[in-house]
Amino acid sequence: MSREKQDVPMGHSDEADGIEEYDNALPAWWLGLFYFTIAWAVVYGVHYHFVAGRSQAGDYVAEVQAAEARWPAPDPATVAAADPKVLAEAGKAIYMTNCIGCHGPELKGGIGPNLTDAEWIHGGSLAEITTVITNGVPEKGMLTWGPILGPEKVAQVAAFIHAAGGGQ
């Protein structure tokens, strides 16, 4: 505490294998940092839980709502009437996330059939592709994507496959 008494040995080195100790004051900035973090911790905790009433579940809902406001979901009628090119653009990302495991990033197939050749097992029209994606082909391991993706995303990914795979 007393600045004038810097570097005064405590005289205990005989009890510490010859190691001497000073009893210098705690650096003011260090003490200030300690007090500041404690104050911050209390303020943050009280604010988060009791003032702002935040929770991770609430924050998530808010984030999703903000995203929905920024990128509003088009209604089905608009989707149906939409430009296939725009749909396909959006469908690409869905395909890359969900489909490449079986159909490959180049749509050349693998576990699932090739989507770029002329052969369409279940039909190659946009409507037929949409149906296959929606209902799946359970006996072949093709998942029923309708409930997972929803009609809008199915329309998008179908448009992408139809365009990129050369559907009829």
Binding site: P9, S13, I19, E21, Y22, D23, N24
Partner: peptide
């Protein structure tokens, strides 16, 4: 706390700080 003051042959800066 043992080897540094031994190697440096210097007293430990602050006993009070050690406690806190």
């Amino acid at each position: 706390y043992y080897f540094l003051p031994k190697a440096a042959e210097r007293p430990v800066y602050s006993y009070r700080l050690s406690i806190i």
